[in-house]
Computed example of a mutant assay.
Amino acid sequence: MTAVKGFPAFPPQRAGARFATSWWGRAWIKAMEDTSLDHTLLQKGRAYAKTGQVGPITVSPGRLAAITEGEYDTVVRVSHLTDAEWNRFLDQVAAQSGHLAALLDGEVPHDLVEAAEDAAVPLLPTVGDLEPECSCPDWGHPCKHAAALCYQASWLLDGDPFVLLLLRGRGRDDLLAALQQRDVPAPADTGTPARAAYALGVPPLPAPPPPAAEYVPLELQEAPGVNTGALKVLAASAAGRARELLAGGTPAVLTERQDRVRLAAEHGLDIGDAPAVLAWQYGGAGGLDTLEHAWNPGKQELARAEAAWRREDLPPVEAARNRWTLGALQLRLGRDGRWYPYTLRDDGQWWPSGGPERDPAALADQV
């Protein structure tokens, strides 16, 4: 019997909803977008996908189908893996028990896909692998309806990687049954047999590690000209950085200004510069630098961010150097490659308003 799986229609999504949070879901979208020659149709497809204009989706071997806006029959075809390719893929899954465990846990391991590629098994689609068909009069490849179907399919792939395997020809049950019937290679003649290992009994546990040294606040007596409160803060800070060194970390070398802001952020000191303290609490030294300095990012870095912003159909921004402004929201790109959100206060000043993100579109819900 041919495996078929149905999924209910996705309801309308919020404006900032994202497609494909998984790396394999993003690979699916990339294969579709790289094939397209019309960015406008892709934009319309994203809007259709988010506004609930795609009906229930049916997934079967080599075929993704739905009734879309206007009662159009929309299909996206994917080539099947041959029996020989499936056998090679099953070899890779069986080679490591963690591969199957990851699939059952809703993950597609990078090393499994790479091993499949080494075995000439095209698991993830690339340019030209997705063949859209639609009964609408649009000549786009894909049309907006097929694009919408592909974008919504990325949500299905995020939730269940077996959807991808079904599109390639075999469903979850078929795959598990085939793995159960395979001959597992005999283990190498090394190590201790399980019976002998159990006969050894339970060995004693190793000695517990030495307890971590706890910081004991300094007991200081008041003295003329000595700020004992500041000394206690400095001692606590030094103890924390020492623990970080002992744990194998490498504390950053800070300027006097950075260290003053750090101390205020970590110990609740009032240095009369609340925006700087907030910036440090949200992003450390990188957050403070982004607050205090504008700079000119590279064109390639900005192009990637602009493409991510457009993919989510977000409103246009006013761009100046590393700062994007949209009403009372401003996003600033830090030299650490992260985008920091700022909010315009009543006094006309921009204040840090949240933690940073690699993708500026992820901060769009603050619009």
Rank of each mutant, 00 (worst) to 15 (best):
T2Y: 09
H145P: 07
L331F: 03
E71T: 07
P297A: 09
A177F: 09
G286R: 00
E266V: 14
G25N: 03
Q13I: 01
A265T: 00
A148D: 02
W339Y: 05
A147Y: 00
S22I: 02
E117W: 09
V59K: 02
P251G: 08
A213P: 06
D129G: 08
L90Q: 06
K50S: 08
E71D: 15
L100Y: 06
A364L: 03
R335C: 07
A119K: 01
P217A: 14
S60N: 05
E69H: 11
V184E: 10
V317I: 15
K30N: 06
A66N: 02
G52I: 09
K232W: 05
A120R: 03
L176G: 01
F10S: 09
S135V: 10
T255Q: 10
R332T: 02
P61M: 07
D118P: 04
A120I: 04
Q349Y: 09
G283A: 07
K44M: 07
R358H: 14
V108I: 11
L179A: 04
G354P: 02
A285Q: 10
L246V: 12
R77M: 11
P137R: 02
L333F: 08
Q300N: 10
R243S: 10
R262C: 00
A264V: 03
T250C: 09
A238H: 13
Q330G: 00
A319H: 12
K5N: 09
R311H: 08
R345N: 13
W339N: 01
L245D: 00
P125K: 04
V233P: 05
E244Y: 04
L166P: 02
R77D: 12
T51N: 14
A84H: 02
D160Q: 07
G283R: 03
W351C: 07
G140M: 02
G25W: 02
L245T: 10
